[in-house]
């Protein structure tokens, strides 16, 4: 599948933004007053990433001016559900954030609803891909699980970084750091299982695609067209697939191993915000590689005709 940069950026950015928002929603249960700049920056970043991601996703549309219509078919379409969930999450989340930030009113109910809505939105993003039966690699229940876990891990690591920037540390932040490291570890271990489970024989073959398998082995003799076409551009992406194994290692190193080491470094040491900032950047880079591979490695059933 062709990896569209707008979609890669959208899923990474809005995933992290919604994860951060989900974490803040839970925060209302435990944390009382927080410094105003911290609240403003954290909520601001969460909304900026989510909205920025959503806007970026409209860049790959043929007719962005009609994007509002995508809210209408939530009864059957996961893309529509994602759109509806995202808008509801932003509205409820904005109300929750405004009450907490400006009126010092940390509503536990609004917080939990925000958390659930944010996570449901991320789940819907994953389901957009998981519902596509024509792409074996995606059509698995683990696909939305990966999206969800990456969103949670991304949100936690961002929260940890912002926490370090805006609060003066007097003792090591063991609790938050451990939770963030566990979230990272779980997300990437599940992702590795996802990769392992995806390396299997394709559901559809040239024999089943043409229905001529009972006669013998089928292979394409002549393409229907001498030039390229939409299908080949969209589904025939094979560039750099040969480097997939190396890129998987790079994704794990940047997305999981390096951030965990940096978080460990940040627990006792001074300059913790610096180390955690690096951890955020490294994780982001790892996620971009992971998301690029998510598309580049996926094979579409239509390619059995080519």
């Amino acid at each position: 599948m062709h990896p569209a940069y707008s979609v890669i950026f959208f899923t990474v950015a809005s995933g992290a933004g919604l994860g951060l928002l989900a974490f803040m929603g839970l925060g209302a249960l435990r944390v009382g007053a927080m410094p105003m700049p911290f609240m403003l920056t954290t909520f601001g970043l969460a909304f900026a990433l989510t909205v920025g991601g959503l806007l970026s996703s409209t860049f790959h549309l043929g007719h962005p001016e009609r994007a509002w219509r995508a809210m209408t078919q939530w009864r059957s379409s996961w893309l529509s559900r994602e759109g509806v969930c995202a808008v509801v999450t932003l509205i409820v989340g904005a109300l929750f954030a405004a009450l907490w930030t400006f009126m010092d009113l940390a509503s536990a109910i609004l917080g939990i609803v925000t958390t659930i809505l944010a996570l449901v939105t991320v789940w819907a993003t994953g389901m957009i891909y998981a519902q596509i039966k024509a792409v074996d690699l995606w059509h698995r229940w683990l696909t939305p699980v990966c999206y969800l876990l990456f969103s949670i891990a991304g949100g936690m690591i961002l929260f940890l970084f912002l926490h370090a920037v805006f609060t003066s540390k007097t003792e090591p932040v063991w609790e938050l750091s451990s939770v963030a490291m566990i979230a990272l570890l779980v997300a990437w271990v599940v992702k590795i299982f996802w990769w392992m489970g995806g390396d299997k024989a394709p559901t559809s073959t040239p024999e089943s695609a043409t229905g001529l398998g009972h006669l013998g082995k089928v292979r394409l003799l002549e393409r229907p067209h001498t030039g390229s076409n939409y299908l080949l551009k969209e589904f025939g992406f094979t560039i750099a697939r040969k480097h997939a194994k190396k890129l998987r290692l790079i994704a794990v190193a940047l997305g999981a191993i390096l951030p965990i080491l940096l978080i460990l470094l940040a627990i006792p040491a001074p300059f913790d915000a610096f180390w955690l900032g690096l951890a955020v950047l490294s994780h982001l880079a790892g996620m971009l590689v992971e998301r690029w591979l998510f598309f580049a490695e996926a094979r579409h059933a239509v390619m059995t005709y080519y």
Binding site: H60, G62, H63, A70, I128, V135, S204, Y230, V302
Partner: peptide
């Protein structure tokens, strides 16, 4: 049609 291309992805 908003031209999102998802239907083309769904068609095997």
């Amino acid at each position: 049609c908003i031209g999102c291309g998802l239907c083309a992805w769904a068609c095997p």
